[in-house]
Design a protein around this nucleic acid. Sequence first.
RNA 1: GGCGGAGUCGCCAAGUGGUAAGGCAAUGGUUUGCAAAACCGUCAUUCGUGGGUUCGAUUCCCACCUCCGCCUCCA
Length: 463
Amino acid sequence: MQLFDTLRREDCGIAPLDGKTYRFYCCGPTVYGPAHIGNFRTFVLQDVFRRTLETGGMRTLHVRNITDVDDKTIRDSQKSGQSLKAFTDQWKEKFHSDCDALACLPPHIEPSAVEHIPQQIAMIGALVEKGHAYVSDDGSVYFKISSFPGYGKLSRLDERELDLGKTQNARASSDEYEKDSISDFVLWKTRRDDDGENFWESPWGQGRPGWHLECSAMIQEYLGDTFDLHSGGVDLVFPHHENEIAQSRCACGGNFAAHWFHITHLLVDGGKMSKSLGNMHTLSDLREKGFTPMEVRYVLIGAHYRKQLNFTLDSLSGAKEALHKLAKSAAKLAENMGGETSLPAADFGLFQPAWDALNNDLNTPAALGAIFTGLREASKLTGNEAAAALAGLNRILKALGITLPETSGDDSEVPADIRELAETRWSARSNKDWATSDKLRDQLSALGWAAKDGKDGYQLSKL
RNA sequence: GGCGGAGUCGCCAAGUGGUAAGGCAAUGGUUUGCAAAACCGUCAUUCGUGGGUUCGAUUCCCACCUCCGCCUCCA
């Protein structure tokens, strides 16, 4: 497939460096609260990326970290009176269940920062030894940016106002740490009172690793000094990924990531998502509003990953209908197959354009559009042609991570009292007692149920 | 101020130097006791504004307007 590379700023062919397994790393969540849909846009699109590679027959090695020690996790664990581990475990669990609900494949390896302190200390040691890092008077260790000429390439610092020299002069006086240069970033934070019990021993005294370092250390551990691709939200380009490049290349040699894949932030109702605006949706919030995780996923893949996606409740409703339409079409195809069985497809058939779209810079919205277009043709088919179409459809849906809702109403979960009302209504209706029938229909809908009448019976569905 | 992105039907959203995918909504019809559901159909001569290049631009160039994001932790 072709994918836009953030560093090279052009579409690049995606293929494993070692010819066997495509190895990629995604910056994972900081587990100090529930992840929001903005976070999930990134994780869902990374999931589609992986599924696309795998659907194309590639083997993958997907590594995604858990940040379980930083300022926020320490601060909020103390606020809640829990140990750091108990606190982060609970949010890690929540994250996993949300990911499952959104049909995101779990990464093959999910290392946590706390579990890789020795690796991080070792990397800092290497950087100090090679002259890329220095120890300040208080025992903190900083990366010396001036020692790495390639610094700023990913985020194109030289084309922005962030001239390093200028930044130093502008901020040197306001920073509490002693540093050679203000832009130097911290690798090891010396222990402070408000860290509580959250500190580790190191050659530079008690403290904890800096945030940027954990990814570099874990990447080195599981993917080595050169691997295929590194991904995250756009906000991570600078300084996080820039710092990772500096740390890893200086400490380990190697080229670090061959490609960079960044997902643009989403907007909510046309603006930035923020707590103060009350538009910080979590998956749980949306479920309470009656939307399914699959509907959320559908919305999240409904715009190209390099464009801002305008997330609205209306688009979620649209997703609900669109998924329903897909499910109906798939059911009709199955019906039209007659006695044929739908075998796993060797190709995409009518849905080849959708597959092509995915492979063209992961164009998920174009792929979705192509699915509906293909379905229009598919609906005319019968027998083994319908079977082949259904197989192609299932294959492309799997690549997108979409599972279809049930088309036939599930009557098994109807409460007894609702069932009774509906039965009464049906008999009234059968007796052409329209007044009673309509009255009971209103009652049912007030209770949240809709009765859909057919020739020989009715079906109940939740409103 | 610097950097970057974007303005395409009511909403969401693809796309292209050759005349606008798709979804939602809306709307007409079939069906229905009436609805709902289902099914069939309709739905941008036009792509922020003004110029320019071109046989031809929504797509390229210039100017302008508007919006958004980043530049501090952030997916």
